[in-house]
Amino acid sequence: MIPSTLEYTKASSIDEAIAAVQAGARPLAGGQSLMPMMRLRLAAPGAVVDLGGIAELVGVCEDGDEIAVGAMTTHRAVAADPLIGEHCRVVAQAASGVGSLVIRGRGTIGGSLAHADPHGDLPAAILAVGGAVIARGPGGERRIEIGDLITSYLTTSLADDEIITQVRLPKGNGRSAYAKFHRRAIDWSIVGVGVAIGADGVRAAATGVADRPVRLAGFEAAINGGASAEEAARAAGEGIDPTADLDGSTEYKRHLAGVLAAQAHQAAQG
């Protein structure tokens, strides 16, 4: 219940934050993932830099074919945002189910992605719409497609001195939905699936079935090939090998991926 000793600075600009990160500080966004890890001493950063004072990291706006979401925008704001709701409903739905009401009021979209929990809902939802993040480091900005961001359990391709500044969500994914299954309401998803019906077909991405969010290639191929949702659901488990644990067997989780993909696909059409 007690974090290790740390130094704290609060950045008032992105440059300040990057300077701090370069000096070894860990970015502290909403703190809803990092703080519990620090309390259990599963994480012990010697220094943190608080991103909570950087106004330009908060907010949602249109930018051409994309929606730009500031990394420090809270789950609650994402869930309620009309632009996201119109163009990327699956992301709004995923955000509305993260944690609890209190956690959604503080946790952020950028923080969730950087934390890279293999049961996180937002990474799968954003993967379903083919989103990306903008990362900024001392050398400037780069765009990282969401599928390239999370590389493993709690691990991203961000450089040590980079922070996520923006999440980019492509428009045209209004017909999309997120379906998740968990035990208690507060719990992380055992499996969650985001489905988006775009111009180039159906995309489906799942959380909880690998060490990172993954596309459900079996489901996509079947549904895009004209199969019924039920048939496609049976194909959803192809190519995924979820780890058995207290929440269920590999077989059960594969099955859930199909059930949820079909549910999300159904909801996406509405």
């Binding site: 035990r183 208690r184 309401a185 507060i186 719990d187 992380w188 207290l246």
Partner: peptide
Amino acid sequence: VEYLVPSAAD
């Protein structure tokens, strides 16, 4: 997180 005491929602 692993020991599931139910909430009002459950």
